[in-house]
Amino acid sequence: MTIEEDEEAGGGPLIQFVTFILMDEVYGINVMQVQEVLRITEIAPVPGAPPYVLGIINLRGNVVTVIDTRTRFGLPTTEVDDASRIIVIESEKQVVGILVDAVAEVVELRETDIDVAPNVGTEESSRYIQGVATQEDSLLILVDLNKLLTDEEWKEISMY
C-alpha cells in the first residue's frame, strides 16, 4: 500500500495538534502554527489595551502581545500558576502569545476525525472553533487561531 493509499484509507493525512487546558476543557491548535511554549514570564500591561490583551513580553528582543485566552473565550479569569504557559503562535496575521492553564500533549487526527462543533454558543464565541474531535468520553475542541480575533482586533493589537 502506498502512502497515498494509506492516507485515503485512513481518512486523509494525519494532522498534529498541540492540546492545552482551559478550565478543565481540552483545546487543540495546529502544531504548524506553534512557535514556542514558554513558562510564565514578566507580562507588562499596556495602557489602552482591550480586555483580552494581558500585556506584552520581551521574547529575545521581540515584543510579543499576550492574549488572555480565558477572557477571549468568555471564561472566568484565574491566577497563573506553575502549570500556566504562554503558547507563542503564528497566525495569518502576526505572532502573538496565548496564555493557557496548561499545555497537555500532541495528538494526531485525520480530517475525518474532526466533526462540526455543536451549535450551542453564540456566533461570536463559536466562530473560532474549527471543529471537535472525540477523545475517549470527552471532546477535544479545535481552535482556528486565525479567527481568534477579528480583522479589526488583529490590527489593533499589532500596535503593540
Binding site: 498534529q16 498541540v18 502544531v31 514556542e36 511554549v37 514558554l38 513558562r39 513580553i57 521574547l59 499545555v103
Partner: peptide, 24 residues
C-alpha cells in the same frame, strides 16, 4: 517517512518539555 516522523516527534516533545534553558 520513518525518519522525518522521528524528527518531528522529537521536535514536538521538545516543545512540550520543560524549557528551563530558554531566554526567560
Amino acid at each position: 517517512i520513518a525518519e522525518p516522523d522521528t524528527a518531528l516527534k522529537s521536535y514536538l516533545d521538545t516543545l512540550l518539555s520543560e524549557i528551563d534553558g530558554l531566554s526567560v
